[in-house]
């Protein structure tokens, strides 16, 4: 029961913060609240029994992503969003239609926490039952990440590497000294 209450309070905070980020024109404050938002999201993942994801979200979302946004704000010297963004009806209609489609999509999926849900049936059962015996690693997330789905993770690592190369190509890799 206490889980559900914490869950609901955090979700409420997250929704409020998302709307705050939407309305804020001061981009520095927006970056700060975005970092806090990621931290709260990490807390929510922790409540939802996903410590690995919470860990990553806390380190990446509220750490590195915030730093990158602050550096970008410094480099571009932009502090405020230019126009007061009034409610625009065409984007609003698209967003409402998308939301309605998503709501229609979730109307018949099993409730949160249902052990009979199809998502828990096929391959997850096998991971939970066999991961420790087959890999000798108690942390199933690590076992699935590095062993069962090792090829996926190789792809992810290559994506990160490629993004690093792309950023260096766009911004210079520091061989030229711009600042005296």
């Amino acid at each position: 029961m206490i889980d559900i209450i914490i869950d609901m309070v955090l979700l409420l905070f997250l929704t409020v913060m998302a709307f705050t980020i939407l309305r804020l024109r001061d981009l520095l404050s927006m970056a700060m609240i975005l970092g806090l938002y990621s931290l709260l999201m990490a807390g929510l993942f922790m409540v939802m029994d996903a410590p690995d994801v919470a860990f990553t979200e806390a380190a990446v979302g509220s750490g590195v992503a915030t730093i990158l946004m602050l550096v970008t704000l410094t480099l571009t010297r932009i502090r405020y969003e230019k126009k007061a963004a009034g409610l625009q009806w065409r984007p609003l209609i698209i967003v409402l239609l998308t939301g309605a489609a998503l709501l229609y999509g979730i109307h018949d999926i099993p409730p949160v926490g249902d052990i009979e849900a199809p998502a828990q049936q096929h391959v997850a059962d096998r991971y939970i039952a066999e991961a420790r015996n087959e890999t000798g690693v108690p942390n199933m997330v690590t076992a699935v990440l590095a062993s069962y789905r090792g090829f996926d993770t190789l792809g992810e690592v290559v994506v990160i590497f490629t993004a690093g190369i792309g950023v260096m190509l766009l911004l210079g890799n520091g061989t030229r000294r711009y600042r005296g």
């Binding site: 990446v60 979302g61 391959v123 076992a143 990440l145 993770t153 990160i160 950023v167």
Partner: peptide, 21 residues
Amino acid sequence: NPLPQVLMLTAIVVGVATTAM
């Protein structure tokens, strides 16, 4: 279920890489 957690873990790190881009 560990599977969605694995998918999201990698998605977070790839997400920050694309954000940097």
